[in-house]
Write a protein that binds this DNA or RNA. Structure first.
Lengths: 152, 152
DNA sequence: GTAAGTGCAAATGGTTTGCATCGAA
DNA sequence: TTCGATGCAAACCATTTGCACTTAC
């Protein structure tokens, strides 16, 4: 984890960005919460626990840089705010998918890809060259599905 | 197309909503542009061509009702505004997918589904019951792909 | 030393809401 | 007639921006 931070610091400097204490703090929060999907405001809250003087604008500006460097993914689950997720340097560019529970709101991730066939079809039929995709699957999670059974 | 309007009118009244001239105009625009992905502002622009007195709030309020009745789909292509698409009453609940060109911004639709296998996996591995899904595929369309070939 | 980064507050822009008025049923 | 619908303007809220000050390099 310390090595991740220095890897990221190197990547920042390669692109002529400075590694400030604020950016380090934001990175720490992102790295410690890779499994979550934090909004800018939530990131600010966590960062402020250790560095109360940081401003929201800095969070947004840092996220923008990290996004442009491909270090965070940005997603939108339809609740009116963007959510960010740290992306390990060595991971493949294709994103994992998200299972969104319509009852409790929990968001799970799945690693299965299985879209290769669809991408081949898309190229064959439309001449469209796929570089990435984003799949949101709505439904009911293991806990909520039984309760909802009668209603579906 | 006239029959679609009356079908929708019936559906509105079933849910105790009135079919006002404004709502009719908004519906007309949505139905005439089923292939597009209009934002609220764009819908207002088209509606104003015939009924200049309509306000933006009415557009939003109408879209909200239509969405709650399942008559329009709502999507977000990451440009900071929601986009709406009229959904024929008889169409299946699973949405079609979108191809988003990273160069020219064109959005194409595809009807292929091909996600059944993935949905089975998701149920088997996670106990997650799928009710719907939304797939955005990013890349380069037939026109832009050749120009971009060297850069990818 | 200096250009880049920061914090604050103000601006922006899509969307929502309050309210007085209007009109479909 | 009556309650829901409308238009307008103001409010809202996530995000962006301007600016004077600070700081990493």
């Amino acid at each position: 984890m310390e090595s991740i931070l220095s890897q990221v610091g190197k990547k920042l400097r390669e692109s002529d960005y400075k590694l400030t204490p604020q950016r380090e703090e934001i990175l720490r929060v992102l790295i410690e919460n890779q499994d979550k999907h934090l909004s800018a405001e939530e990131i600010l809250g966590l960062v402020k626990e250790k560095s109360p003087e940081i401003g929201l604008a800095t969070v947004y500006r840092t996220l923008e840089i990290l996004y442009s460097l491909g270090l965070v993914h940005c997603m939108d689950f339809g609740d009116g705010r963007k959510r960010y997720e740290f992306e390990l340097l060595e991971s493949k560019s294709h994103q994992h998918h998200h299972l969104i529970c319509l009852n409790c709101g929990k968001i799970e991730e799945i690693e299965e890809d299985l879209l290769e066939e669809l991408e081949r079809e898309v190229y064959k039929n439309k001449g469209f060259v796929v570089t990435n995709h984003q799949l949101k699957i709505y439904g009911f999670c293991r806990n909520c599905a039984p309760k909802k059974e009668g209603e579906i």
